[in-house]
């Protein structure tokens, strides 16, 4: 199934979710385990609602990340869960590559709900869906992804997906938050918002973790907001009809000002709705490939 078809399917799921009767039966009788090694209220509840609307039995497993430090434990956990014969496991892990490792140890389908600074594919899909529904297309748009690119799985998945769909992807960040060597991967990089946002159609802001704000990667919150925080002035560098996105949770006054986050150009709340639809589409697409489907 290609990306466009997946997004078309997600469009249909939006309609399902907007009905009074939201229940479908494509996953009836199936077991979905949400295995979260790091807490994520938003993504986990989104996957939970998506699974339930498709009729699956959904079980949430919160694993304290402190108790799972070694690969052996991860593989043991996988083997244990596998013995319970689930159909789909949705995994969030703090280490890049951990979901891939787990997927090789189980017999069922595995959905990556974010692994370290590597990938967060359903986030990129929901961002693509949000853009497509608002702009009517993705191809030819200029998308500026701004902020902590270095530590962001959201950035990596979006870079790959949006570029594959024909968008011009720009990365905007202080050099300390850009992965060294990223320019050689073929993405335009900018260290100033005025240049990076110039004529952009989409401004996608990233969350800056608290522990990276105080002198390690950037000097301070004040300085970060002054030069890289999206306020009305900096948004003015983008096209007049530019739209603002953020994967959440937001740090207001750090990477984005409240008036922009809540303003007319913001798609941030719509992204959350599209998150459920995209995850329904992903789960349903998987369901059609499950044994005995």
């Amino acid at each position: 199934m290609d990306i466009k078809a997946l997004l078309d399917l997600a469009d249909a799921q939006v309609e399902v979710s907007r009905q009074v009767e939201k229940r479908k039966s494509s996953l009836r009788g199936r077991t979905q385990i949400n295995l979260f090694f790091e807490p994520s209220t938003r993504t986990q509840s989104s996957f939970e609602i998506a699974g339930k609307r498709l009729g699956a039995d959904v079980m949430n497993m919160q694993v304290a990340s402190s108790s799972v430090k070694k690969g052996e434990t991860l593989i043991d956990t996988a083997a244990t869960l596998n013995a319970m014969r689930p159909d789909i496991i949705v995994v969030r892990h703090h280490a890049a590559g951990a979901v891939h490792l787990l997927a090789r140890k189980v017999d069922c389908s595995v959905v990556n709900a974010g692994d370290g600074a590597h990938e967060h594919p359903t986030q990129a899909l929901l961002d693509a869906l949000t853009i497509r529904r608002n702009k009517g297309r993705i191809e030819g748009l200029t998308v500026a992804i701004c902020g902590d690119i270095l530590h962001s799985r959201v950035a990596r998945s979006n870079m790959i997906l949006l570029a594959a769909m024909g968008a011009r992807v720009r990365l905007v960040a202080p050099s300390t938050l850009l992965p060294p060597g990223i320019a050689r991967l073929g993405f335009e990089t900018f260290t100033s918002m005025s240049e990076g946002l110039k004529d952009a159609d989409i401004v996608m802001m990233l969350r800056l973790q608290l522990e990276r704000m105080n002198g390690s990667f950037v000097p301070s919150v004040k300085e970060y907001f002054r030069f890289y925080g999206l306020d009305q002035e900096k948004l003015g560098y983008a096209k007049p009809d530019a739209l603002v996105m953020h994967p959440g949770p937001m740090n207001r006054g750090v990477e984005i000002s409240s008036d922009v986050a809540d303003g007319a150009q913001s798609l941030i709340r719509e992204q959350v709705e599209m998150g459920v639809a995209v995850r329904m589409a992903v789960l349903e697409a998987l369901a059609s490939h499950l044994p005995n489907a």
Partner: peptide
């Protein structure tokens, strides 16, 4: 260059 000249945290170079 660093806060308090302590060599630990970068000062606010831009501001």
């Amino acid at each position: 260059l660093t806060k308090g000249l302590k060599g630990g945290e970068m000062a606010e170079i831009g501001r």
